[in-house]
Nucleic acid binder design. Sequence first.
DNA 1: CGCGCGAAATGAACCGCTTCACACGGCGTG
DNA 2: CACGCCGTGTGAAGCGGTTCATTTCGCGCG
Lengths: 353, 353
Amino acid sequence: MRGPLLRDVAQQAGVATGTVSNVLHNPAKVAPETLARVQAVIAELGYVPNAAARQLSRGRSGSVGLLVLDARNPFFNDLAAGVEEAAGSMDLAVLLATSAERADRERLYLDRFEQSRVDGLLVTPVGGSVKQLKAIRDRGTPIVLLDRLATTPGFSSVAVDDIEGGRLAGQHLVDVGCRRIAFVGGPVTLEQVRNRLVGAGRAAEAAGVALSHLATTRMTADEGRRVGSEIAAMPRRERPDGVFAANDLLALAILQALTLAGIRVPDEVAVIGYDDIAFAALAGVPLSSIHQPSYQMGRRAMELLAATMQAGGDSRTASQQVVFMPELAARASTLRYGTRVRPANGVPVEPLA
Amino acid sequence: MRGPLLRDVAQQAGVATGTVSNVLHNPAKVAPETLARVQAVIAELGYVPNAAARQLSRGRSGSVGLLVLDARNPFFNDLAAGVEEAAGSMDLAVLLATSAERADRERLYLDRFEQSRVDGLLVTPVGGSVKQLKAIRDRGTPIVLLDRLATTPGFSSVAVDDIEGGRLAGQHLVDVGCRRIAFVGGPVTLEQVRNRLVGAGRAAEAAGVALSHLATTRMTADEGRRVGSEIAAMPRRERPDGVFAANDLLALAILQALTLAGIRVPDEVAVIGYDDIAFAALAGVPLSSIHQPSYQMGRRAMELLAATMQAGGDSRTASQQVVFMPELAARASTLRYGTRVRPANGVPVEPLA
DNA sequence: CGCGCGAAATGAACCGCTTCACACGGCGTG
DNA sequence: CACGCCGTGTGAAGCGGTTCATTTCGCGCG
């Protein structure tokens, strides 16, 4: 039941195996009529090259591994699309895997990738596997860290400035007149959460506005609903008049809980999220959010990786850190009547449709 | 710069290559102390097996290919998660790719998968590549079609009954008192859209209710907004009092457009979507939808594929069609005050093979 | 004491392709 | 006319594992 081999094609066409190989990869090096004949035989026999054999003899896989935290998160989907796009134009295949934020799965997939001899690796690290990453890199596989600033020297990375993102969100709430801001998110073991909180804190402090932190155990809709109801249940004068949620899923759930409780958004409470997923703009009250150029980040990361791969063979190239700036996408959930908002850096403010 | 090979490990540990291979795959066949010694050397040298070489000599890849239409669609994310879960428990790796509904990409990835000698293939066909799929199957790779009933004999498939889903949605709108229903979606070249429309048509007809079709060119938020505004702009007596959108993205956009235009949902217009994505329940007015057991579909498809793979080697097994039943998820966007809705039928029905 | 047996280890043959040193005319050039 | 070169082909030597028939050895048993 095994299919025809390259040597079967060669025999059938009356040429050497090397010639068939050339027909496949260097058509220019083959005389026109030979080429035609061989191609005909290939079609006739239904020959399908064996990728494993090719990889083995070539010594390169022609693919890169992409390990993300959560395949269901739109942010990572966009990121992956960007990577794929860039990889495609370089004739590289992308192997995608999800760690689901679990260290054991991260280890598993990193192992698999290394065994597959990927030419490069793009990783959003769960954390804790720095050692393994170093080992892989030291064995010769270029690695670019994603969505996390490389603290460890020797790694390149593409990330977005979460502190600045937090600051933007906090400043925006201040700008629309909030005096008691609540930051919702957690666990703080997540670097992103910490940084966004820090950024918001700076903006609040600078404006002399109070900032509280309502912790969540995870960033899910359930947790958002819970916190939303808690906020709604607070006595009016203690209640925050501005909520900054660490991601859009939380924000949307909070928004819903508040609305259901009869609290007017943005008049009584302004709400802003983070990530600017497609559904943010689709909410009943369109949700303000912090936009990250996820697609571009993916592209850029892949380009950076490619550069490292080129140089990587022999020279120890300096690592690069690319930091993207997040942007404010202001929508109805924060834009109170009569508020005037300074346009954020470059970004079109989108008031109601 | 090349890493240590299996034979280096063997030499260093003073054993034959076969023994090292056994240490890796049949530890039970190796004497305890030899095992320990070899493992120590492996760790010391940082030996990483070469997957290509292993695959070449074993003749199997230990992986399956999964080709979906759209990686950004939550439905496919869930499906993929189900596949991955099932595959994981069978020690199979999943290679994921997106055709983006483009026939050329479908061809490309099918080729790649076949060249990688995947042990099986799960495909949501774009359409038009039936021929290629047949060829691949005839060359010996088991294939299970996803989210589409296999019309071609000889293919197994896992799908959901879209006609029934359409009927459920239509019936629900009838049940909550709608007399003029609009179906929104397109293009009708998509089988799913056609079937949902047919199902809705049956329910409407049976109840003697009018059903119109507002066509869209694509199922995107933009198109939803457009149609939503059009509906809002209609004179009241012509306006539908129930809208069934072919997916949730459309539905959410319509919902938003109606709300923004000051039309009360569900009182003036009831809205129901399809897919029951996570964000449906998070909308300002929680969106009713038709739920598909995407995760289970993924699991089941993988199991079906595994069964085919087992049998596939020699016997020509009968193909199986598994059809899941969609379920109504009734929420605020259709539940008018005082309406009584018959509970939807309980459990997914799987007709046996 | 000789024999058979199972546990442990061996190592050469293969898996299917790419590569590359080399062969073989035919042709323009000095 | 001899030479070198170029356009075409050739085919054997790897690439790095797995497999399996075979060898080795210690031990219980008649």
